[in-house]
């Protein structure tokens, strides 16, 4: 509103005032969904985490920190928290490297390849996690494709199985998060003038120097966002690590499901998911703070 037509603005303001209820009416369905089916369950879950679990009943009303004490003192749960964080950290770091190279490849290649690569990157995003799990489930075991390909090409003599190893879980997790990383970084790279690289090369910089001195500073924020996106996603995923990894690979998500569906211990499952939510939130706030600080430093 630059004051180009004052009467018009005043008239519009009147309309807006008359229809003050309109936006709330429009937002009503969305608010119902978010408040009743997200807000309420979250509060309910927070309350549930302080209840007690005794005997065969699902829960006994109470007010105690017992469940949180269990989560932070029982070896199984503490181990699961560390496993989850470690796995998320390693998988996100690997995704970042692969995703960065992939985005760089698409950015530098001629435009005719672009659509094909983008279609390729969309695949993990559009295919159900369960179908992807099953795909790797047929690739890694003793009678799987990997073993068959290696033995029939004469590279190894005995059948091998990589199924139910941490490596398999890792491969599956990176596969799931790759598209997030790729698209975030590609959109950042698209905003960079390619002639800057040519200029740096003409001035005698080696490719590694160009990467370190030109590309890295320009994409640092994007990398941070991509990393945290992958990290958050990986922390909450439990199906892939539990289906492809070893039986002892217990992530927080797996234990939440185990306590809820297997043991019927609702209070403990709630306490564990509250801890998961807090970790996700901390990660988001942390990235945000880091990203904005970096941004102000560069400006």
């Amino acid at each position: 509103m630059t004051g180009e037509d004052r009467a018009f603005t005043v008239a519009r303001a009147a309309v807006i005032r008359r229809k003050r209820a309109a936006p709330w009416l429009l937002m009503l369905p969305a608010l119902i969904i978010v408040l009743i089916f997200f807000g309420l369950p979250t509060l309910y879950m927070a309350r549930m985490s302080f209840n007690l679990s005794e005997g065969s009943k699902l829960f006994t009303p109470g007010l105690s920190w017992a469940n949180y004490q269990t989560v932070f003192s029982n070896e199984v749960f503490v181990g699961a928290i560390w496993t989850t964080l470690q796995l998320a950290l390693m998988a996100s770091a690997a995704t970042l490297v692969i995703g960065y190279l992939f985005a760089l490849l698409v950015w530098l290649k001629p435009a005719k390849w672009r659509l094909i690569f983008i279609g390729l990157a969309l695949c993990p995003l559009l295919i159900s996690e369960i179908a992807i799990i099953f795909g790797w489930w047929m690739f890694f075991p003793k009678n799987g494709l990997l073993s068959f390909a290696l033995t029939s090409s004469g590279l190894i003599s005995d059948k091998i199985s990589l199924m139910y190893t941490e490596f398999a879980a890792f491969v599956g997790l990176v596969y799931l998060t790759l598209p997030f990383c790729f698209f975030i970084l590609l959109s950042i790279l698209d905003g960079i003038d390619k002639r800057m690289l040519e200029a740096a090369a003409d001035l005698g910089a080696s490719p590694l120097t160009i990467f370190r001195e030109v590309l890295l500073p320009l994409t640092r924020n994007g990398m941070l966002v991509a990393f945290s996106q992958c990290f958050i996603f990986t922390m909450g995923t439990y199906a892939t690590p539990s289906a492809l990894g070893p039986d002892t690979l217990w992530t927080m998500g797996f234990l939440v499901q185990e306590q809820m569906l297997g043991r019927n211990n609702w209070p403990l499952a709630s306490a564990l998911s509250m801890v998961l939510v807090v970790l996700v939130a901390v990660m988001m706030v942390f990235t945000r703070a880091l990203a904005t600080r970096r941004a102000t430093l560069h400006v």
Partner: peptide, 15 residues
Amino acid sequence: FMPGVVLGLGVAIAF
């Protein structure tokens, strides 16, 4: 941004 397992658990115990 919430993990599916958390949303599923919340809705399941609330309803």
